[in-house]
């Protein structure tokens, strides 16, 4: 992979680079990542007794956790809803709509690879959907814990359970996401600088590359 990148960097960039994530998407991703980082760090302090004792200051840590959580949907909503969000909305549609091939991948638990990969492979799509669904559920259950007065005690107990179980799942998924990023440097660079090489797209997202070539100007670097 490094060889391919080196070769491509040696020739004029514009011919070989395709914009995978625009500035709005990258800003939303990293703002979201920062909030997730704060939430996960404070979650560890609030949950594990051995860590609670190291930092203490329960009320302060809980407040940081709660208000980072309340802020969680903001970057995504701003990037989706503004006039600047055209590509974000297009990619949301890509993530939402699956081909029957991709559904087969899901049903076979990742054994049957889809024949044609679009801009995102089904694993990437599932990751994005899981993050969205997690934000929804964590925000709802977290709100019940924060504003407990308005909810029966049994709901608070249920919300605590859901919040905890989903937190464990989120840790697993986020750690997996970071490991994938670190072992797929081209993909990670596209979330930092925005672009991928045409060669990368031909290997990893041929369906998307074909689409890009058929509609010049869209998703391409200026």
């Amino acid at each position: 992979m490094d060889d391919v990148t080196t070769q491509i960097d040696a020739v004029p960039e514009s011919a070989y680079r395709i914009l995978r994530f625009d500035g709005v998407q990258r800003a939303a991703h990293w703002a979201n990542a920062l909030l997730f980082g704060i939430l996960m760090l404070t979650a560890l302090l609030l949950y594990f007794p051995s860590l609670s004792g190291v930092v203490g200051r329960r009320a302060l840590v809980a407040n940081i956790h709660v208000w980072s959580g309340v802020a969680l949907p903001v970057p995504i909503l701003i990037s989706l809803l503004g006039p600047w969000g055209a590509q974000m909305r297009r990619d949301l549609r890509r993530i939402n709509v699956w081909t029957s091939d991709e559904v087969k991948w899901l049903r076979s638990l990742g054994m049957n690879a889809p024949r044609v990969v679009d801009k995102f492979n089904p694993g990437q799509k599932l990751n994005a959907i899981f993050v969205g669904g997690s934000i929804l559920v964590m925000l709802a259950t977290g709100s019940i814990l924060k504003w407990f007065r308005f909810f029966p005690v049994s709901w608070r107990t249920g919300a605590t359970f859901v919040h905890d179980v989903l937190a464990f799942a989120i840790f697993a998924v986020v750690i997996g996401h970071i490991l994938f990023a670190l072992t797929h440097r081209d993909a990670m660079r596209s979330m930092i600088k925005g672009w991928v090489s045409e060669a990368w797209a031909a290997r990893n997202a041929p369906g998307w590359l074909r689409e890009m070539k058929a509609t010049p100007g869209r998703d391409e670097l200026p």
């Binding site: 949301l92 939402n96 081909t99 029957s100 024949r115 799509k125 599932l126 994005a128 959907i129």
Partner: peptide
């Protein structure tokens, strides 16, 4: 093979 399903919305 070309049919498309709104999996994202369902999972969400």
């Amino acid at each position: 093979p070309g049919s498309r399903i709104a999996v994202g919305r369902r999972v969400f």
